[in-house]
Computed example of a mutant assay.
Amino acid sequence: MTITSFQIAELCGLSRGTVDRALNNRPGISPKTREKILKAAEELGYRPHFLAQSLVKGRTKTLGLVMFDVQNRIFAQLFHSFEAEARKQGFFVYLALSNKDPDLEIEYINNLLDRKVDGIALHSVNKGKEFEAYLHKARVPIVSFGNQISKQFPLVWINDKVAIKEAVSLIQAKGYQHILYVSPPLRYKGKSNIFGPEQRHKGFLEAVKEQAELSYTVITEKDFLAVIGHYLYLPHKKTAILCTSDMYALDVLKFLSSKKILVPEQVGVMGFDNIDTLNYVNPALTTIDYSVDDIGTTLVESLIRKQEGQKIPNLTTISHRIIVRDSI
């Protein structure tokens, strides 16, 4: 049974206004009376009606975070940093996982709006004018990450194009002549929002065109390991496998090991994200690193600033770097 301030007032023989002043730490009440009310509230197990208070104040001190899933460690790490910063700022976080389902994503956004969240950080699978109009009607701050929705909604992420171009330059400098570019999300092009993978693909194509001596194959199939196996057993040049996620690169390393193919002696492998799991991988994986903590913190700060009516940049770019290890 929920204990109300009215019941506390009856028990103490005081007015509800006096009880409310004590419970909300407002002036106009003696220390002795305040102590009496707070003691009664504690004994009864009273908890304030948070939603009612929030409606009065116009803020719920809650934020929503919508992402695909947490199977990729980079997003598990991002949630951890987002929640830590939100908690530091006095906010509670609702996490929703869309599993890349456009309808489920909208359902979860609606659920967050029903809970009157103060802002939503969104890794969106949806895109288009209709979706943008829907988000504008929500009338809460929305900041995107990973996949840009449009320039009307701020984005916090890294420069994917530049990062991939730097990766290609490294591979070329190490003497590789052919690149197998692994990016399964590209098979959803035109069907859902894959802004991040598309930016990486554009950067890759620009980079290989600048390196005339480099040939390449783009692999978008779900069963990318079978495709890689096909290419590795054909006559080929010195080959590196560039993966757009460390998760793909880890699968590639395991596959190559099962085929007794040495890395990097026979084939080079490079990932993207520098997930914490790489600490336990041998050979150590060359990858692109960026601060997930900075992304999580910036998302929270941006949402709070927008909620307070402050202007924030349309694009906040988090710095990246290549970490060269044993696999290239």
Rank of each mutant, 00 (worst) to 15 (best):
K174V: 05
D160A: 14
F255Y: 15
G13H: 04
N282Y: 15
T317L: 13
I120N: 03
L234W: 10
K238A: 07
R21M: 03
R47H: 13
G309N: 01
R321Q: 14
F195N: 14
K32C: 01
P235M: 14
S291N: 11
F204A: 04
R187M: 12
G128Y: 05
R34F: 04
G64D: 03
L95K: 00
G146K: 08
H236I: 04
S98V: 00
H320Y: 15
L225D: 03
A76E: 03
K116D: 01
W157N: 12
A121H: 00
I8N: 09
G58Q: 05
L44I: 05
P283Y: 11
A121Y: 02
F75R: 01
Y231C: 07
Q307L: 05
A9H: 08
H201D: 10
D20I: 12
I149K: 11
L38A: 03
L205S: 11
S302C: 03
A41H: 10
V227F: 09
R34T: 15
L155H: 05
L38W: 04
D114K: 13
I179T: 10
Q53E: 06
K222S: 15
D326K: 14
Q211F: 15
A133M: 12
S30P: 01
Y231M: 06
H49F: 11
V143I: 11
L303Q: 00
D273Y: 09
F50P: 00
T62I: 00
L44Y: 06
I120Q: 04
I318N: 06
T298Y: 08
V300G: 06
L242N: 08
P102C: 00
E130L: 06
E85F: 00
K311I: 11
I179N: 07
D69T: 13
G175C: 03
D294P: 04
H49K: 12
Y280V: 10
N193Y: 06
L303F: 00
I261A: 09
L256N: 02
G17L: 08
I323E: 13
E308D: 07
V125F: 06
I8E: 12
I8M: 14
F255A: 13
Q89T: 00
I142K: 09
V267Y: 04
